[in-house]
């Protein structure tokens, strides 16, 4: 089976997932991102790498943060950015996904940044572009269903590398709703590829996917046990709709068992860092004291995210 995100030379053609991507490419992206962090500090925050290129942010699912950071990244590379929020609902389908893509291709798109509520949707688009001889158009997955959020995973790796330098000695804990989280899947894939020796997931059984241990993680249901001696705590966002019903009884109980508090964080290494993909639910998965505390690197994550997205886009554009 061909790898749909690499071209025949083994270079990045699309960014669809971090799962299965060679470590060399992951590191290459992080290395390329490094100098881009300085662009934000310049008086003129622009590079000409994507001048004349049209980047279409096609969001089939609402997002403000991710779309904005992609937009900033593309604009700093001098691309023309077009934002589309394509409202879809299962009852009123209207135009098909591929019809939308064909139309945007006809408008001269060079790159699609796609978010979709259904796992695998960006693969369908990449496959369609290949089948119709439009390999020159790249697809960046900005989050698909529960499957992957590769740029989030990459910016998390960038953040960890920035603070911890070396992946090979780390113990990392991912806490929260792994079952529904594309972020968690991308993080696990990237951490494993980059050689992190111990990856833990901490969650109640209702929020863990079946056979999660086959992804190469150690499972903890007791948060205090799971946080012992970790270097990195990666919190996951808990969606509001999950908080009542059969998955969890209440947000209060969730916070009691799986919310990150100062007291629980003290079980981690003294220099542990805390990441969160945002937006945070204070008092649900994370206590304000931790979110604003000295271990948190949540705002630097956002800044690094722009650099990482610039790196991905410039690589896909062949620069």
């Amino acid at each position: 089976m061909h790898n749909p995100q690499l071209n025949r030379k083994g270079e990045l053609q699309h960014l669809l997932t971090l799962d299965g991507l060679p470590a060399a490419i992951l590191k290459q992206i992080l290395d390329i991102a490094e100098p881009f962090t300085e662009v934000a500090e310049r008086e003129v925050k622009k590079l000409p790498l994507l001048r004349g290129k049209s980047v279409f942010n096609v969001f089939f699912e609402n997002s403000t943060r991710t779309r904005t950071t992609f937009e900033i990244a593309a604009k700093r590379l001098s691309a023309d950015v077009i934002n589309l929020n394509v409202a879809t609902s299962s009852t009123n389908k209207g135009e098909t996904l591929l019809d939308t893509i064909d139309n945007l291709c006809a408008m001269g798109a060079d790159m699609f940044v796609v978010r979709h509520a259904t796992s695998g949707a960006p693969y369908l688009i990449a496959d369609h572009l290949r089948n119709t001889g439009r390999e020159h158009i790249s697809v960046v997955n900005a989050g698909d269903g529960r499957h992957a959020h590769p740029t989030q995973g990459l910016l998390d790796m960038y953040t960890i590398r920035h603070y911890k330098k070396d992946f090979s000695q780390l113990t990392v804990a991912i806490v929260g709703d792994v079952l529904h989280s594309r972020v968690a899947r991308s993080e696990i894939a990237a951490l494993a590829t980059l050689g992190v020796p111990e990856i833990r997931v901490i969650a109640p059984k209702t929020l863990l996917p079946t056979n999660v241990e086959r992804m190469g993680v150690h499972v903890y249901h007791d948060m205090r046990e799971g946080l012992k001696g970790v270097d990195v705590v990666m919190m996951l966002r808990l969606q509001n709709e999950r908080m009542q019903g059969a998955l969890l009884p209440s947000s209060q109980e969730y916070f009691k068992c799986y919310g990150l508090t100062q007291e629980k964080l003290e079980l981690a290494k003294p220099d542990a860092i805390v990441l969160h993909p945002g937006p945070m639910n204070r008092g649900v998965e994370i206590d304000s004291a931790v979110a604003d505390g000295k271990h948190a690197v949540i705002l630097p994550q956002v800044t690094f995210g722009i650099a990482v997205r610039m790196a991905v886009m410039s690589m896909l554009a062949g620069q």
Binding site: D144, G145, R185, P209, T210, N211, R214
Partner: peptide, 15 residues
């Protein structure tokens, strides 16, 4: 199928 593959791919499983 609710197993390793569905978990990895983020597909909702049927046990």
């Amino acid at each position: 199928h609710d197993g390793e593959v569905a978990s990895r791919m983020g597909l909702a499983g049927i046990p």
